[in-house]
Nucleic acid binder design. Structure first.
Lengths: 341, 341
DNA sequence: TTGAAAGCGCTACCAG
DNA sequence: CTGGTAGCGCTTTCAA
């Protein structure tokens, strides 16, 4: 059926090992030009494809790297993945991307699966909070990089954003526009990134003496619907917020839907700032004031860090790379309407 | 280092083949409860991970499926990929997604790479026009499904959209709003989907006796920048179009940028309809009239078709599945402004 | 310059 | 119920 090295060898009347040497072409292996040509020609003629599985088994090197993300259809993750992919391709590796759907069991499943398949390194955007499987990889000194989400008590490589500062800055900005009741619409609360953003929010609320009503913190899911529901809860408060900071691409869509459905004008009725990376932010009915990430750069930094550890012959200390987010001022965040405050 | 079946066997004082049988657990293989437990316990204790590479080699089954897309960071592709991924996961397979960047050489590279790694089926959104590598797969009756882009003279399974009809309908809609100078902003012209859309456009232009100026057809790339440049070309025409139909998610962003930069109001100055699947369409400054795809469904249909062919014992005739797009009327397409026409 | 043999980790088949 | 053996396709070391 499929043609193997042995088939090629038989066809050429040489030994399989000879074919192997020719095709792997280490130049210093002396081989007669005649047989070399013979083998090359036969290889092309019979459409020989080396069996990577066999090579991997033999060499104990798969030439693959694994990337575990929550959901590749979310542009946040897919653009990071793309940044990684381009570099892996150039380096001659193949990237295998899998989705956890923010589910820890699936994450564990895929860690095992990818390890079973011999990936030489692993990059994970973990579903959190579970980390025993990651600790285990660390224990065996397996090349690993966490992306966007870190674990406080884990000595793992990580490429993360300055979430806390960014969040603080956003609230501060709204405060300077006169807002006192600022809501935070978060994603899943046990995510590192979300925790940090809420920290920044809380700190700013305290520093600027804003409304401390705990109901102003809403949301604990990652879907569009979660964003919609949490926003509705906020808007239905007795004293609804005059400004809203929301977190995440899907959450944003839900929030915008709710605001629109409520018939609220932005920023007259409510000011909004979003942690979001949509290409459409500036084209929205009110251009959206955003905190965005250099996604491709995140991917590249992460992969370079991974490569560094893959190449290292001795154990390297773990590194935490901090990525700067970008605060883009747009009309969706405006002065508070006195009527509301 | 990593623990193998042999290690486990030694640890348990049994033969490797016994361990194998226990762990693969075919119930009808009679094995004493005692050794079974012994092996299970040891397996957990030593954190045994089966080497999938070895299994694949032995079984000639990798449990993987390949998906070749142009660019996973484009939501159009990533959402199709996600639809596929969910089903492959449920079926116990692993999906390997690779990016071609609309580059045929990369596509060829990855076809070889994935075949080398023993994928059991392949789904391709081809970069086009080259198809000899696909023909080759067809010749060996390898399970294969094309997505979104077909080849006229290739008997391959394909899941494609009703591009021509959708495009025709969009132009017709604009025509009924009084537009006579309607432009088509396309993506890469040698893509099947784009060709079909242009066919629909041309047919409508003819049927409704619209302006046939060939300059009204613009664009031949897939990037944001391509969309921007082509739109600028259109808007700078001596007789610029009063309506514009554009194709593709990235192209759309470029087009919107150009329109905004030109200071044009939608739909007063120009009406627009987009082949796009953004979640933000209805939130844009003027909600965008769109032709959108049931992306998850496309993925699912494609995978089911692939599975059908993977399971078939004899050669099946190829199938062409046509997917219906959705035309969503929104404000961005409005009556022509008499001042302009 | 090429051939022979061993073995990566696993499973399937045949014995006992 | 369990052990032994062979072999998937490839590479590598040692011989010739």
């Amino acid at each position: 059926m499929t043609v193997t090295l042995k088939d090629l060898a038989a066809y050429c009347n040489v030994h399989p090992s000879t074919v192997s040497r020719v095709l792997r072409g280490k130049e210093n292996l002396r081989i007669s030009e005649k047989t070399r040509q013979k083998i090359f020609n036969a290889s092309r003629k019979l459409k020989y494809r080396p069996n990577q599985t066999a090579r991997t088994l033999r060499l104990k090197k798969s030439g693959t790297i694994g990337l575990i993300v929550p959901d590749i259809s979310n542009p946040f993750f897919s653009r990071i993945a793309r940044g990684i992919d381009i570099l892996t391709y150039n380096a001659g590796y193949m990237l295998i991307v899998v989705n956890t759907d923010e589910n820890q069991d699936k994450e564990l499943h895929y860690v095992n699966e990818l390890m079973s398949r011999g990936v030489e390194g692993l990059m994970i955007i973990p579903a959190q909070d579970e980390y025993s499987h990651i600790q285990e990889l660390l224990n065996m000194d397996f090349p690993l990089v966490l992306i966007d989400r870190d674990f406080e008590n884990l000595k793992a490589n990580a490429v993360i954003s300055n979430n806390k500062e960014a969040s603080y800055k956003a609230v501060k900005y709204l405060c300077e526009l006169g807002h006192k009741r600022i809501a935070a619409l978060s994603g899943r609360r046990n995510l590192y990134s979300i925790k940090k953003r809420l920290q920044g929010y809380r700190e700013a609320v305290k520093d600027f003496n804003l409304d401390k009503n705990p109901d102003l913190i809403a949301g604990d899911g990652h879907t569009i619907e979660d964003g919609y529901n949490a926003t509705m809860d906020l808007l239905n408060l007795e004293n609804p917020p005059t400004a809203l900071v929301f977190s995440g691409n899907l959450i944003s869509v839900g929030a915008l839907t709710a605001i629109q459905e409520k018939g609220l004008k932005v920023p007259q009725d409510i000011s909004i700032i979003g942690f979001t990376d949509s290409l459409y932010s500036e084209f929205l009915s009110t251009p959206l004031c955003t905190i965005s990430h250099p996604l491709q750069e995140i991917g590249e930094k992460a992969l370079n860090l991974l490569f560094k550890h893959m190449k290292a012959t001795k154990q390297l200390p773990c590194e935490k790379v901090i990525i700067k987010t970008t605060f883009t001022v747009r009309d969706s965040a405006g002065p508070v309407n006195d009527r509301l405050s």
